[in-house]
Amino acid sequence: MTTPLLSVKDLVIEFNTEHGLIRAVDRISFDIFEGETVGLVGESGCGKSITSLSILGLIPSPPGRIGAESSIKYQGKELVGLPEEQLRLMRGHDISMIFQEPMTALNPVFTVGNQMMEVIMRHKKVNKKEALKMAVKMLEDVGIPAPEKRVHNYPHQLSGGMRQRVMIAMALSCNPHLLLADEPTTALDVTIQAQVMDLMGDMQKKQNMAVILVTHDLGVVAEFCQRVIVMYCGHIAEVGTVDQIFNRPQHPYTKGLLASVPRVLEEKVEFLPTISGTVPDLGNLPKGCRFADRCERATEECNAKPPQLTIDEKTQAGVACYHPYK
């Protein structure tokens, strides 16, 4: 097996709140390999967005902080504890990010060209004129009509889909090796969603980069990802290929999650199954498995000690459960 592009080990992310210290992410580990697309899925609040932010060192601190024993290695280089100046050189250059809200993620008082050029000029030794040319080229690549005109537009003059295209153009302008896409299509119309996802797929092939797709939309994951990481309440529940996760889910949570997705092609069902119970409060976590409360397979063992996730080196799959489905 090749060395991973990104290797996250024992990642702990804590927040200081008025109810005390809260662990939003608790000792999770996973690897991302070059050129692959990995879906990071889970309910809102499970820690998936925070995980992606932590890779770039963007956890707001205070109140947040990354635990001391955590390790995030990018191409073998440790990112945790790296000086801010060095991290800055990597942001947007080696690792890029796309955000959920294209309405607010771009600065409203500068033209899109200005913002793109700022990124290009920061990471590449080019002058203004060349940067503008590159920005126009990027806009063209992401399928924006009349890019030489659009480059002088302000974000509010563009539609939501266009803005997300601009965001993608900006993120890819320095040919990153890893793209973190945090719910890139959630805020868009359904018809636009597919276009944007197709665009991301095309761009990924063109530039051969790895993508971490943070989303709660399992449909998108099934269509675009090779591997999936399922998170629940700050833990990783299950890791596997799309095929494994969707057709042979092992963790009861994964199974429940999949069952609650409405399917168009299947015959009519009487009601949509849901997972009963609620997600435990991060400030008041159970001692054992965090899903035990809602799990029909839970035993005493589950309540006593949390199950560990062991990832098979060869298949890169694994499940954190004492009683997985086979």
């Binding site: 963007l58 100046e85 942001r91 990010m97 993620a105 600065n107 008082v109 700022e118 920061r122 900006m170």
Partner: peptide, 23 residues
């Protein structure tokens, strides 16, 4: 959000404050 975006693209504190925040 746009401040987070600027940071995610490697913007340093001086530029962040005097370009993005101030304007």
């Amino acid at each position: 959000d746009h401040v987070r975006t600027a940071k995610a693209f490697g913007c340093g504190p001086v530029r962040l404050l005097f370009k993005h925040v101030l304007k």
